[in-house]
Design a binder for these strands. Structure first.
Lengths: 207, 207
DNA sequence: TAGATTGTTAATCGATTAACAATC
DNA sequence: TAGATTGTTAATCGATTAACAATC
């Protein structure tokens, strides 16, 4: 139904649509969305056509209806329980990141291996040892985990999460966590890699 | 010479090669790199072939030599001066992120619009008002900026950075900053979008 | 030499884009 | 009706992969 490329653009459409909705817009055209996201208008129509005929020719798309359809189809109408593993600088910032809860992600547990951190508070939550991951995943029906541990710990943490029944991992550790045989989905975000991508793209554009 | 897709994988190759180098490995094969990054071995050879014939048939690639070639070609043998604009939770975490300096990125200035923050310290640097961006970009030859301001400020900040002569922006604000007509390169990283991509991919895999 | 692995071509696959009939 | 914009097809473009000769 939807290609991987289309799926990965859906959160962007959703974000723009929600912004338009907040700004009081009731309709939007493919060209407008395309411009805001730096895409081609054909691409936007093609991406959205997967939902069926939602637009009105000559008029555009209904902002509210489109938001609801995307959310319904892709599961962001409900909330997801999330845990955070690794409470360093980045982990702390991620735990307080407003954008997550705004999209229906509920942080229900935070974990670290450092005995000095265990038992202390992070926001409203108490930092717990990794050994308690299984229990919480069971009791709270946790599906997603954010991993911000050091590189050398990431693979074993990912394995533990998988064993605990986590179905999705957002990995910020500077290693590619990919388990080809497993059913756990992983999205890797390496901040240093992103900055280097920028630098490389700048170099290339200067040629 | 290099496709965009290849360029965006280069930081990943570099990261794995540096890890192998630290671990004392002197040689590596395309299949090994592929496995670590979840890629196809043909793809790795094709990506690396852009540098010329660096491998030895029957043997593999020289780890150290490959690192140096990538760095030389793509400008990560030198250091880049970087500024940070927006000192919230995320900005603070980014300013202390070890991965940046390890790859030759030097944070030379931090800026915020909040008078309450201006003049206070962030690590070794003093937070300054946005008005001083131009001066610092000139005096320190700054090429890259990390933007972690609220969504509504991001576009005007990006514009200011562009005017100041910044050539690359790593944008963490939840808006797509793209200036089609400008020569400034932008890489957008929206953390909420990444988490949602994960959730959508999980939904899709469950179908 | 035999085995391994690269470099590179050609085939495949998937994603983007242009174009336009359908229709609001 | 005239103008605008969708939905969808067909064409294009680019990226991935399989395969294998070259060669260490």
């Amino acid at each position: 139904m939807f290609s991987d490329a289309t799926i990965s653009r859906m959160p962007l459409y959703l974000r723009e649509l929600q912004q338009l909705h907040r700004a009081g817009q009731t309709r939007v055209q493919s060209g407008v969305l395309a411009k805001r996201l730096g895409l081609n208008d054909s691409q936007v129509r093609r991406d959205l056509s997967g939902f069926g005929s939602l637009g009105q020719r000559g008029v555009g798309y209904d902002v509210k209806g489109l938001i609801q359809t995307i959310q319904n189809t892709l599961g962001s109408d409900r909330s997801w329980n999330v845990i955070l593993v690794g409470v360093g600088n980045l982990g702390r910032a991620l735990s307080g990141y407003r954008g997550f809860e705004q999209q229906g992600f509920r942080l229900v547990g935070v974990f670290d291996s450092d005995p000095g951190k265990i038992g202390t508070k992070l926001g409203l939550l108490t930092i717990r040892p990794l050994e308690e991951i299984d229990d919480l995943v069971q009791s709270e029906d946790v599906e997603l985990a954010i991993v911000s541990v050091p590189a050398n710990a990431a693979v074993s943490v990912a394995h533990r999460l998988e064993m605990a029944g986590i179905t999705g991992i957002l990995n910020f550790a500077p290693v590619t966590v990919s388990k080809p045989q497993s059913s756990t989905t992983v999205v890797n975000v390496d901040l240093a890699v992103e900055l280097q991508r920028l630098a490389f793209a700048v170099m290339k554009s200067k040629e």
